[in-house]
Simulated assay, not measured.
Amino acid sequence: MKLSAPIFKLKRQAKLLARESDIPLHAALDQTARNEGFRAWSHLAASASDHRPAHEMLAQLSPGDLVLLGARPGHGKTLMGLELAIEAVRTDRSAFFFTLEDNEGVVFDRLQMLGTDRKVVEAKLTVDTSDDICADYIIDRIGHGSSGALAIIDYLQLLDQRRRNPELDVQMKALRTFASATGSIIVALSQIDRAFETTGRSIPGLEDIRLPNPLDMSLFTKACFMHGGEAHLEKIA
């Protein structure tokens, strides 16, 4: 069944409905799903799962990849990151979601929006919201013995926000080396400069990444850019 809008926009509609009608988010999600012709949000999410960009994207990633995932706010990069983690868990791989942006409750609310049962994924999905998150912390948390793990970092521009953390370029070099050595896949979510919206282009590119501090973009092996429900994956190195 074809949806009237991309799933990330339907989730946004449900959140707005929950606020305006003063109802729980799960009730607003179910109402939105019924408007689309589904019994409940879980039914809609399950129906759409095989067609999610994350399902196709993960199939195109390789052990050792360091991936940039960029989008403007509200265009689904955090949900895409979580969907990638869920897809990894479904293939019996360990997955990590490191976030300096949200607390654990927000992360699991988003998992609910994706139609995912917390009990199903939490045995394989590690959600880490520590203020100490940086490259060294991530490497220690995953461990060199965790071959083939998938790690999502939310998000790139916050890694060197604390002065005690190494420069962003140094951190990404360490993560690239770690990914190559362990066969892990590391995906860093990234902000896109707001100036992109004045370019008239349909999807951002590397030149649109917001970089307060210098970063060698060739450290990334692949990049995925999202906008308006579209996702484009490209090779870098």
Rank of each mutant, 00 (worst) to 15 (best):
M1H: 15
M1F: 14
K2L: 08
F8A: 10
L10Y: 03
K11S: 10
R12E: 13
Q13L: 07
A14K: 00
K15R: 12
K15C: 06
A18Y: 05
R19P: 07
R19K: 12
D22S: 15
D22L: 12
A27M: 09
L29I: 04
T32L: 13
A33S: 01
R34V: 08
R34W: 10
R34G: 08
E36S: 01
E36P: 00
F38N: 02
R39S: 13
R39L: 15
A40D: 11
W41R: 08
S42Q: 10
A48H: 03
D50G: 14
D50M: 13
H55K: 11
L58Q: 02
A59I: 09
Q60S: 07
P63S: 01
L66T: 00
L68G: 05
L69K: 00
L69P: 00
R72F: 04
R72L: 07
P73I: 11
H75L: 10
K77I: 05
K77M: 04
T78S: 13
L79I: 12
E87R: 01
V89K: 06
D92F: 03
D92V: 11
F97T: 05
F98W: 07
F98R: 03
V106Y: 15
V106K: 13
V107M: 01
L111M: 12
Q112L: 13
M113I: 06
V121G: 01
A123I: 14
L125T: 00
D128E: 05
D128N: 14
D131C: 15
I133N: 05
D136H: 09
Y137N: 03
Y137F: 13
Y137W: 05
I138D: 03
I138C: 03
I139A: 06
D140A: 13
R141W: 10
G143I: 06
S147Y: 07
G148H: 00
I153R: 04
D154Y: 04
D154K: 12
Y155N: 03
L159V: 00
L159K: 03
Q161L: 15
R164N: 15
N165H: 14
E167L: 05
L168P: 11
V170F: 09
M172H: 01
A174K: 01
A174R: 15
T177W: 02
F178T: 02
T182E: 00
I185T: 08
A188Y: 04
A188T: 05
A188W: 02
L189W: 12
L189Q: 06
S190W: 11
I192S: 05
D193F: 04
E197A: 14
T198G: 08
R201Q: 14
S202T: 06
I203V: 10
E207G: 12
E207F: 06
D208N: 08
L211N: 05
L211V: 14
P212C: 11
N213R: 11
P214F: 02
L215I: 02
D216F: 09
M217E: 13
T221K: 11
K222V: 02
F225K: 13
M226C: 10
H227E: 07
G229I: 05
A231W: 10
H232I: 15
K235Y: 12
K235W: 11
A237H: 14
A237G: 15
